[in-house]
């Protein structure tokens, strides 16, 4: 579904991604873990064509929806409008099935997106991504700033979509715990390079990952 080979991205003189290779197969659930500034968002922006690449190749085997960090909703538009805009490239712009998926969002459809809570906004952001009827959805920092219960709920919905509709997931997370519990496989990104990869189980047991990303159960500070 996603084939990335030797991808490099530069901002002015700085190298943001350096020879990154990554594979995601259809129907897989893959996590991309890394600290702030490791290049995770840059990789997603390159995948969705928002920034040019300096080298390497990206091949997508289907439609990709990119749910950006910080949700990035249209705050002055209603929830309904936000969802419909997600279907800009799709034929069917009826968001009814998103309301079935997230009943809580269905009750807020006429509200301004900017007035919702963080968790509700994340549901709308994911819903907006799904409106494009993607084959793969890439979600940047889904869990950031959200209560664990909400994150669990969102992860549950995504797992169902993966199991029932074969939706491929690429989760980009600072929180390795969330990512490794939801996904089958993961890549670890550090300063623009992939430094580790493997199954979720392997990485959870790897001393390197434990030390750097799972160590002490630290509270999210940012």
């Amino acid at each position: 579904m996603i084939h990335v080979d030797d991808l490099s991205v530069r901002y002015a003189a700085a190298t943001a991604l350096d020879g990154v290779s990554l594979r995601v197969a259809r129907g897989e659930k893959v996590a991309l873990i890394g600290a702030n500034g490791a290049g995770k968002s840059t990789l997603l922006n390159a995948l969705s064509g928002m920034i040019p690449k300096a080298g390497g190749t990206i091949r997508l085997g289907g439609q990709l929806a990119h749910v950006p960090e910080g949700r990035q909703l249209f705050p002055d538009l209603s929830v309904d409008d936000n969802l419909r805009l997600g279907a800009f490239r799709a034929r069917d712009r009826n968001p009814a099935w998103i309301y079935e998926l997230f009943p809580e969002v269905g009750r807020l459809r006429q509200q301004r997106a900017g007035s919702l809570s963080g968790g509700q906004q994340q549901m709308v952001a994911i819903g907006r991504g799904l409106m494009a009827r993607p084959d793969v959805i890439a979600i940047d920092e889904m869990s950031l700033g959200l209560a664990p219960l909400i994150v669990q709920q969102l992860a549950q919905r995504l797992s169902e979509l993966n199991a029932e509709r074969g939706l491929t997931l690429l989760l980009v997370e600072q929180s390795a715990r969330v990512a490794l519990s939801l996904c089958d496989r993961a890549y670890v990104l550090e300063t623009g390079r992939i430094v580790a990869q493997g199954s979720a189980a392997e990485l959870t047991d790897s001393p390197f990952v434990v030390a750097a990303y799972l160590g002490a159960p630290v509270e999210e500070t940012s």
Binding site: M50, Q72, F74, D81
Partner: peptide, 22 residues
Amino acid sequence: TYAGKCMTACASNPYAAALQGI
């Protein structure tokens, strides 16, 4: 209108609008 909403979306958040393919 949908076209009007697309314009508002570009005004409100050009990055997010571009991500939707607008």
